[in-house]
Every structure is written in structure tokens, then in C-alpha cells.
Design a protein around this nucleic acid. Structure first.
Lengths: 187, 187
DNA sequence: ACACAAATAGACAGACCTGTCTATTTATTT
DNA sequence: AAATAAATAGACAGGTCTGTCTATTTGTGT
């Protein structure tokens, strides 16, 4: 029922354009044209542009988690999986020509007073963080670890976030490689 | 000569609006109205909107460095100054109601192919990073430090960046506090 | 007093924006 | 076969956008 052909085309085009051009710079008209569907069809499935934003975030969130899970699956132990988090980001940066994290991009376009949008966005980030928590939980704490468990999780997450935005601004993967190196010393 | 009254008003209003609403969502008409100047005056000083962007980045960069320098000045030793970097960000987040870093916000609105804009943006970030390098250079390396000097600098920078974006998305200072805690253990 | 720069008001072009509406056609289901 | 849903084309309203242009007034330095 939700699998209609037109809806899929709309969602695919929207996802691509919102990520490449941003939310504000992407117009309904462009979506209609590139998706090759009628105006009324779009408004039938998505009554307002805001509904497209919600769908975009959910779609991208789903993709991200699926891809990450697949990427980490073959890695053998928690250490390697944690380093895999950084490698995955590196691969993604190459694949998107340094487009950066979609959640960060969208959040920068939102008015800071738009609480409902920010709660959507924050929920997406929370999911990503959960992937780290799951791995750190399986680490055998080092004898004389510099950072205790919970702080280690947070630090790894923040390193990942900082390296991602930094890599996006600099348009090279150096920050992610450095973050990976630091992570290797901390786990 | 560049100190004309009208120009200052334009720049002040532009700076506020670009930061609060973003670049794409701020119109020339709104700037004119809020600055209380004539349309032709704006185009006299800034021939295109793009010129406003350049001026905005330079203005904000100047402000950021000045404020940070003033904030760190009374702190006594390199350790405290490094932790001061985090405290300064916390204060800024409160002061801007969690508006976040202006460089990150703008970079998220740029097309990733806009090389000239990205080089402006990257230069601003480089300046901020330099502030950390300066402090770390004065640290006496710990005997058995987990992270060697250069990697320590990069790690502190990435922690700061990650905690800033994370704090902006979550709308609370917890990430910055955690990053500060991690930094304290690393230096 | 003269010249030049800076600022003003406001109309205008040409394009784009979101969302609504009418009226018709195609599918699917019962 | 009848009814319901999904899709189509395209006009339309009301607004906003950037940038240009004319024509006039204010200010400043020489």
C-alpha cells in the first residue's frame, strides 16, 4: 500500500536532492520534474514539504544503520569493529564525494527553535551512538585504561563526529584517519 | 573609509541574520529593512549576496578569535587554557541558545562543489585549530602519555568539534562537559 | 564653491517558491 | 460492473527572491 511506484520515485529523488542541495534549496518543482510524476501525486503522498523532511530523515537513518551493520558484520572482534566505525565513515566520504553526515547537514538548516525537528534529528544521532555503545560494551576493559567505560564510549562518539565534520570541511580523510589512530590507542 | 555608518549597520544585521536563520533563508529584503538602509546602499557596499557571505565569515572569525583570546588570557597555565577551550564553547552555547558553530552551519549550506567557499570556511577552522596548537606546544609532555604531541592536538581539536555539533543537536552542554573530562585525562 | 562619493526611495524585471484546485484518466478491488 | 483509490496535466494565487535602474539628496574634502 505504501509501496506505490510514484511514492518510491518521489522518496528516492527527494533523498538525493535534500542531501546534495539541502532542504531549503530544493524545491517541490524540481522534485516533481526529476521524479517524473504529477504535482498532485506528490501532495497526495506528502501533504507538505515538511512531511518530505520527516520521510527523508527516516529513509536515510534506515539506510545508514543497514549499511553500517553490513559493514561491521564480517569484522571479528570489538576492537576491529570500533575501528570499523571510522573506516566506514571514510568509505562513505569517498562514496559521497565528501558530502558529510546527512543529520548534521539538516540540523544546520533548522531553526534552533524548531523543537519537533530537532527531536527527530537527535533521535537519529542517538541511534548512531547506540552502535558504538554496543561495541564498547563487549570490550574487555584494559587494566590501566585512561578512560573509564562510559567516558570512553562518549569520547569515541565525539571523535567520530568531530572527524566527520572536519573531513567534510577540509574535503579530505585526514581527520578520520587521525581519529582512528587516537581511538586505537584508547581502546 | 570602510567605516561608513551604513556599511556597519548592514554588516551587523547580516551577521545576526545569517547566524540565526542561515544563508539561504535570509533575504536581501529583510537585511535592508532591519538595517534601515536603502537597497542601493547595500548593493553599493556589497555587489552581490555572495560578498555578504565573505564579509560574514571574516567578521565572525574575527569576533571568535578575539573573544576566545580574551577568555583564555586570565588562565594561568597551558592545562587550564586547554580546558578553557571547552569552557568557552559551553559559555558560547548558553549565550547563543545553542546556536552552534557558525562555520559548521555555513558549511552545511554550501554546495560541496563550491571550492572557493569551502576554502574560506576551511581557513576559518584552521585558525581555530591554531589556538589549540599554541597551547599544546607549551604543555610539558607527560612521561607515559597515551597520545604523542601531534596526535594529542588533533584529538583535542576533534573532541571540541564533535562536542560542539553534538551539543547543538542535543540542545544541552553534556557533550562538551564529557569532552572536557576526557581532555583532562589526556593532557 | 566645486566635485565626488555615499545614501536615499521606490519601481521594475524575471524568476522561483509552496500549496490549491479542476477535471480527466488509469488501476484495483469488491 | 460499480466503486474507490491513485495518478495525470496544468492553470492559478499570493508571495518571495536577487539584482538593476532612475532620479534625487546629503555629506565631505579640497
Amino acid at each position: 500500500m505504501k509501496e506505490s511506484e510514484a511514492r518510491n520515485r518521489i522518496l528516492n529523488v527527494t533523498t538525493r536532492l535534500f542531501y546534495e542541495q539541502g532542504y531549503n534549496s530544493t524545491g517541490i518543482n524540481q522534485i516533481i520534474e526529476e521524479a517524473g510524476i504529477a504535482r498532485a501525486s506528490l501532495y497526495h503522498h506528502f501533504p507538505s514539504k515538511r512531511d518530505l523532511l520527516t520521510a527523508y530523515l527516516e529513509e536515510m537513518g534506515q539506510q545508514f544503520v543497514n549499511e553500517l551493520t553490513a559493514y561491521l558484520a564480517p569484522l571479528k572482534n570489538p576492537q576491529r569493529k570500533i575501528l570499523g566505525l571510522f573506516d566506514y565513515r571514510i568509505e562513505r566520504q569517498y562514496h559521497t564525494s565528501f558530502g558529510g553526515c546527512h543529520v548534521m547537514k539538516i540540523s544546520a538548516e533548522l531553526e534552533k527553535t524548531d523543537a519537533s525537528a530537532f527531536s527527530l534529528v537527535a533521535a537519529q544521532k542517538e541511534k548512531q551512538k547506540q552502535a558504538i555503545i554496543n561495541q564498547v560494551a563487549q570490550l574487555h576493559a584494559k587494566e590501566n585504561a585512561v578512560l573509564p567505560g562510559e567516558l570512553l564510549t562518549e569520547t569515541l562518539f565525539l571523535l567520530l563526529e568531530g572527524a566527520t565534520i572536519s573531513s567534510t570541511i577540509q574535503k579530505n580523510i585526514q581527520p578520520l584517519k587521525q581519529a582512528r589512530k587516537a581511538a586505537a590507542k584508547l581502546i
